[in-house]
């Protein structure tokens, strides 16, 4: 990962006439955070960063932009938006294109091959109470942090998000430019959380989820961090009909989590942004991965790979499995 190369490429992108602005990551204000950065001026590219701390999925901002009113008749074509995408982010963009949530013609993707992003929960345990902004990078497969004047090297397994350890697409699947070299696919740990969880008894599974659903504070950070939860009229906020009550209790929380997971069935690209955004560490990806696995095993479908594929839930095959039907 050569940051200078990336910044130079971003500068070139911003000096093009058709590009309106670039969405990238900037240094955050404290600890292990990075902040989204919106740049219009090629002279400001030194503020860009890309590191294992860039866990947010910038594709969320594309669908917000798309909702702005169309220009008046005869106005110049809309500007294109450049956006920095990791491997998983690019899959989210592909899925947005499939669903026509964004217009491919208006996007310019700057691909950033990624070796995994940190899990905020894990780094907080390693470096408790860090307030000063930390720098981080990848080095020979390990993650390095510069904090308090020291350089700390930690193996990926100890700090990376669980989803990154068995990442299937570290390199962008769709990109207009790729300033840096591709990284090798390396599976640090096979993830068997779904099949292990399935081996528990039904009662034990509910005991687990009951505890989890009870901790959820329904802040909807998972929804806001998700690049594929972009309905402008979200059913969670509808009052008429009230699909869900707004009260925070076990029943409504359970319904919320079932609805959220189900709405991402066949759409979730497993970037893990929801889980990293969650303030109470709800294992949202466990539900998402369960459905992703069902979709793959039953229907052989993986979202976010082919911009020309039909959306999974809008398609069917006459010979789909139906073993549970009476």
């Amino acid at each position: 990962m050569d940051l200078e190369k990336l910044r130079a490429a971003a500068g070139n992108v911003l000096s093009r006439d058709d590009i309106g602005y670039l969405i990238g990551w900037g240094v955050g204000s404290y600890g292990f955070r990075t902040a989204p950065l919106f740049l219009r001026d090629a002279g400001e590219v030194h503020r860009l960063t890309f590191s294992p701390l860039c866990g947010s999925n910038l594709a969320v901002f594309l669908t917000m932009e798309y909702d702005v009113a169309a220009p008046a008749k005869g106005a110049a074509a809309k500007e294109r938006i450049a956006v920095m995408v990791k491997g998983c982010d690019s899959r989210a963009v592909v899925q947005q294109i499939v669903e026509r949530g964004v217009d491919r013609e208006r996007l310019f993707l700057v691909g950033c091959p990624c070796e995994g992003v940190v899990d905020p929960g894990k780094v907080e345990k390693k470096f408790p109470g860090t307030v000063e902004p930390v720098r981080a990078g990848w080095e020979n497969g390990a993650v390095v942090f510069w904090t308090g004047g020291q350089k700390v090297t930690l193996p990926g397994e100890e700090v990376l998000s669980a989803g990154c350890l068995d990442c299937s697409h570290p390199n962008p699947v769709l990109a207009d430019i790729m300033p840096c070299e591709e990284v090798k696919l390396r599976r640090l740990a096979a993830r068997e959380d779904v099949s292990m969880f399935e081996q528990k008894s039904s009662a034990d599974r509910w005991l687990y989820w009951k505890r989890i659903f009870n901790t959820c504070i329904r802040c909807y950070a998972c929804r806001n961090a998700c690049p594929l939860c972009y309905c402008s009229d979200c059913l969670l906020e509808r009052l008429s009909p009230a699909w869900l009550f707004r009260s925070v209790n076990l029943s409504e929380n359970a319904a919320f989590h079932l609805a959220r997971a189900f709405h991402l069935a066949g759409r979730c690209v497993e970037c893990g942004a929801c889980e990293r955004a969650c303030p109470v560490e709800v294992p949202l990806m466990l539900l998402n991965r369960k459905l992703a696995r069902e979709v793959y095993e039953r229907y052989g479908f993986q979202p976010g790979l082919d911009p020309d594929s039909p959306p999974f839930q809008a398609a069917f095959r006459p010979d789909d499995s139906e073993e549970f039907i009476l």
Binding site: S202, D204, R205, W209, F262, A265, K290, E294, R298, F324
Partner: peptide, 13 residues
């Protein structure tokens, strides 16, 4: 089919 798998996964009979 998916909804049922999801319900069963969360511990519904």
């Amino acid at each position: 089919t998916l909804l049922r798998e999801l319900l069963v996964f969360t511990g519904v009979d």
